[in-house]
């Protein structure tokens, strides 16, 4: 193992001169971003915050109603239900999707015949987006008389309508999400490309097996990218909207079984003309996501390995 250890040590200690402030350069590089925050983001974000304390039906001017929206959240059973749905989705689908993405990225990364073909094929489901055609397609596959049930029928099993049965709808959505592992897979692939091959060569000289190479080289060196995917997939999963919208026709049904948080918020805001409450809900979601992200960043100190 000595060669690996050597290389890692080499990388962790940069040993350069002490950092000095680069305020001027930072201002230059961040200029577009600062302009974006000020001109594009700040106004609407602040407005949504203010609206969270109002009764706003979109058509008439908002009316300040103090903490009423927050009180409503406490007793809103459908909100609590949608939180449950969302948490289940986040905790089940994110690990599964990342595992699939990382596994296949590892498999596809190096020295394989037909690599570009597989990579493209695996990415295809992620290209499809959320058009009407896709809604129809899911029904053809997961419907009561759909492809899956036809195949199950072969084995004498009678399936249900996977997306129209409240007992299976959420699980089906999770499967669908795992299926679109293409995006994190591509990011993993790009990250794997950054790992210098000499590490693996050194490991092989040391007689390290595949598993050891994975644990000692791939995971630490890929950890910034794993971390990125983890943080972003969690944020995305909490905000998951499109899939449930497409599959349930925007209702979050059957029986609210796919009522994701953002779908509920959207329905309150646009279908029930309750944008004040929807804005308050959005800020609660922001707090939840921010809390998870903060925990992620805190935990990252223990396992994410940077080169600086």
């Amino acid at each position: 193992m000595s060669a690996i250890g050597e290389l890692q040590r080499l990388n962790t200690s940069t040993g350069g001169p002490p950092r000095k402030r680069d305020t001027k350069a930072a201002l230059l590089f961040l200029l577009p971003w600062f302009a974006g925050i000020l001109l594009i983001t700040a106004g609407p974000v602040a407005a949504s915050f203010v609206l969270g304390f109002t009764d706003y039906n979109l058509i008439q001017p908002p009316e300040f109603n103090g903490l009423e929206n927050i009180q409503r959240m406490l007793t809103d059973e459908r909100l609590h239900h949608s939180l449950g749905v969302t948490f289940t989705y986040v905790f089940v689908s994110v690990p599964l999707q990342l595992a699939a993405a990382l596994g296949l990225a590892m498999l596809l990364d190096r020295g394989m015949r037909g690599l570009p073909f597989y990579r493209s094929a695996f990415y295809l489901p992620s290209l499809l987006g959320s058009s009407v055609a896709i809604a129809v397609l899911w029904r053809q596959i997961f419907g009561a008389e759909g492809l899956i049930n036809q195949m199950l029928g072969f084995f004498g099993i009678e399936g249900t309508g996977w997306i129209s049965d409240p007992d299976t709808a959420l699980s089906t959505l999770i499967v669908l999400n795992v299926w679109t592992f293409g995006a994190p897979m591509v990011i993993f692939l790009a990250g794997l490309r950054q790992i210098p091959v000499m590490y693996y060569e050194a490991a092989q000289i040391d007689g390290a097996g595949r598993w050891t190479q994975f644990r000692r080289i791939t995971v630490p060196l890929l950890s910034p990218i794993i971390f990125f995917n983890l943080v972003l997939q969690i944020i995305h999963a909490f905000q998951s909207f499109t899939q449930a919208f497409v599959v349930s026709g925007g209702t979050g049904g059957p029986s609210d079984s796919t009522m994701f948080y953002t779908l509920y918020l959207y329905q309150r805001g646009f279908h029930s003309f309750d944008m004040g409450y929807a804005s308050a809900l959005a800020w609660l979601l922001l707090l939840i996501i921010a809390a998870f992200t903060a925990v992620n960043f805190w935990a990252a100190k223990r396992w994410v390995f940077y080169d600086d």
Binding site: T41, Y266, S279
Partner: peptide
């Protein structure tokens, strides 16, 4: 790569901007 005042805070703000669902941003925007 750069060191500047409030880097962590700005970074947190940057991440925060993708945490609000678009549906409540779109009307004011």
């Amino acid at each position: 790569r750069l060191e500047f005042t409030g880097k962590k805070l700005w970074f947190a703000i940057m991440l925060g901007t993708i945490m609000l669902p678009i549906h409540v941003i779109i009307v004011p925007q």
